[in-house]
Design a protein around this nucleic acid. Structure first.
Length: 508
RNA sequence: GCCCCGCUAGCUCAACUGGUAGAGCAACUGACUCUUAAUCAGUAGGUUCGGGGUUCGAGUCCCUGGCGGGGCACCA
């Protein structure tokens, strides 16, 4: 105990003092009658119905939560107790709860969990408050939470935080403390859950079947990315954490499951950024007898459904932008828009000419990039920064899309789209390649790139080709970056703000 | 992996060209029976991220390591 600093030591001493008084500081259970928000709502309803005399008391109720503020006035105290989605003021008065119980309030701290029971009333300053008749300590907090003080602007209703908990490193490392002191953050994750629920309900109502496919795979595929590698000991087998669900889900189409989807964690062994976490949530779905045009329409309906369910409006503020989700979203051809920007048809430009264009724009390190990669880079630099409103970029070069079906009117292209929102790629879909001979040829082209040193090129998946030989119906499929979509809806600047425990280096 | 920035009390931050490490909040003691960033008086609290160096003297300058943020690269 000598090595504990003063703040921690004082709380241990209070713990001992409580036990000496016969109070168990870590209770086993407590059954609150209401949540704080319900207490306030029902008191206000009582007032609205005129059932309350001036200054009268409402029903007795009990709540359970964490002490988040405390104001000591001698023979009375005011505190706020917060539960999951709100908080309520508690009025402790010496003559109401008795001398002994009142004295024991001195052994409570900010951060303690308590249960409080009593009638509701409105204070002179107008706040709905529980007049404590009794209280129960539920859990003693032995480490002070980094509460900031909050000030409510009575006119605007906005909250200002003073000297709060701001260090990003500590917030991510100690997410429990971050959540405990930031009610708005709890709301972000509530919204995340609602979004995923709305995506699920939409696909369910469209007749899709939710399935689960392997996370541990002997062969990875479905995207261009480096995998995490692991080991299965009993089988003596090197295995990979999935980088995508695609190839397994499409096998299910061969098997006759005509509409399937999966919400999953995927893993890509790459750098971190504002929009990248190595472990992230992906939604993929596949629908038989549809093509990429049908899927763009489906995405528009799906996004609309989610916004209606979660926000009940079709406009979202994201940073400095206001994004409108009114369909239809514009469709712009990748090759055409890039050709316009460059002033020349990109199909007429040789690799070397593209590299020159890239150099002029100041793009770095493109010496080893092939034609497809150069196109991708130039698009990112020239077009992407303008794609604030939802926009489908369509018809990607074949070289960039080894799993997408050739375009019905241009063999150099595929029927593929990516939906950009807020300058970030959020959906990626195509008419799925179901010609097994073409698929094998594309895999072999990838293998060639791989031998040339591209360690993100895809591997040949013979079993997948065998499945296609049995026959996969014409199919449209889409992958969606769920975390990024949640960022947009909840107006968070970093993917770390929508993932509860983002990847960090170990502390020591 | 590269570039830039940051790391000081439990939390948020100060500390000029190198010269006794401070404040607000939280904590502790006391006053106060409708307060709400409560108020008032007082007290305590530090390995300045770790290691090394320069100097009479380092939070400050130099080297090195760690962690984080932003950007680049890679990717969704």
């Amino acid at each position: 105990m000598d090595d504990l600093n003063q703040v921690l030591r004082v709380r241990r001493e209070k713990l001992d003092a409580l036990r000496k008084r016969g109070i168990e500081p870590f209770a086993h259970s407590y059954v609150p009658s209401h949540r704080s928000s319900e207490v306030i709502t029902s008191f206000e309803a009582l007032e609205d119905r005129g059932r309350l005399a001036e200054g009268g008391e409402g029903d007795r109720s009990s709540i359970a939560g964490r002490i988040v503020s405390w104001r000591d006035h001698g023979k009375s105290h005011f505190a706020h107790v917060a539960d999951v989605d709100g908080s309520i003021q508690i009025y402790f008065k010496k003559t109401t709860i008795g001398d002994e119980r009142f004295e024991e309030l001195g052994l409570l701290d900010l951060g303690d969990w308590i249960g409080v029971e009593g009638p509701t009333f409105r204070t002179r300053t107008g706040e709905v408050t529980i007049r404590a008749k009794s209280y129960t300590l539920l859990t003693k907090s032995l480490r002070p939470l980094p509460f900031g003080k909050v000030e409510e602007n009575a006119e605007t209703g906005e909250w200002t935080e003073h000297s709060g908990f701001a260090d990003p490193e500590t917030r991510y490392r100690q997410r429990y403390a971050d959540l405990a002191v930031h009610p708005d953050l709890r709301k972000v994750f509530g919204t995340r859950s609602k979004i995923i629920g709305a995506l699920r309900s939409f696909l369910d109502s469209e007749g899709f079947l939710e399935v689960e496919t392997p996370v541990l795979q002997p062969l990875y595929g479905g995207a261009s990315a480096k995998p995490f590698v692991t080991q299965h000991e009993a089988l003596g087998l090197t295995m990979y954490l999935r980088i995508a669900d695609e190839l397994y889900l499409k096998r299910l189409l061969v098997g006759g499951l005509d509409r399937v989807y999966e919400i999953s964690k995927d893993f890509r062994n790459e750098g971190l950024s504002r929009v990248h976490n190595p472990e992230f949530t992906m939604l993929e779905w596949y629908q038989a007898f549809s093509d990429y045009n049908d899927q763009m329409a489906l995405v528009e309906r799906m996004v609309g459904h989610v916004l209606d369910e979660v926000l009940n409006e079709r406009e979202v503020r994201y940073g400095r932008d206001v994004i409108s989700f009114e369909p239809p979203f514009p469709r712009i051809p990748l090759v055409g828009s890039l050709s316009d920007a460059l002033g020349a048809d990109v199909f007429d430009l040789e690799e070397q000419e593209l590299r020159e264009k890239a150099k002029v724009l100041g793009l770095p390190e493109l010496d080893t990039a092939g034609w497809g990669k150069l196109i991708d880079k130039l698009f990112s630099a020239l077009i992407e920064p303008d794609l604030v409103q939802p926009t489908f970029v369509i018809d990607y070069p074949k070289e960039l899309s080894p799993l997408a079906k050739e375009h019905r009117s241009d063999p150099r292209l595929t029927e593929r789209f990516e939906l950009y929102i807020g300058r970030v790629e959020m959906f990626n879909g195509f008419s799925e390649l179901n010609d097994p001979l073409d698929q094998r040829a594309r895999f072999e082209a990838q293998a060639g790139l791989r031998e040339a040193g591209d360690d993100e090129a895809q591997q040949i998946d013979d079993d997948y080709v065998r499945a296609l030989e049995y026959g996969m119906p014409p199919t449209g499929g889409v992958g969606m970056g769920v975390d990024r979509f949640v960022m947009m809806i909840t107006d968070q600047p970093s993917i770390r703000d929508v993932i509860l425990f983002p990847i960090l280096r170990p502390e020591e």
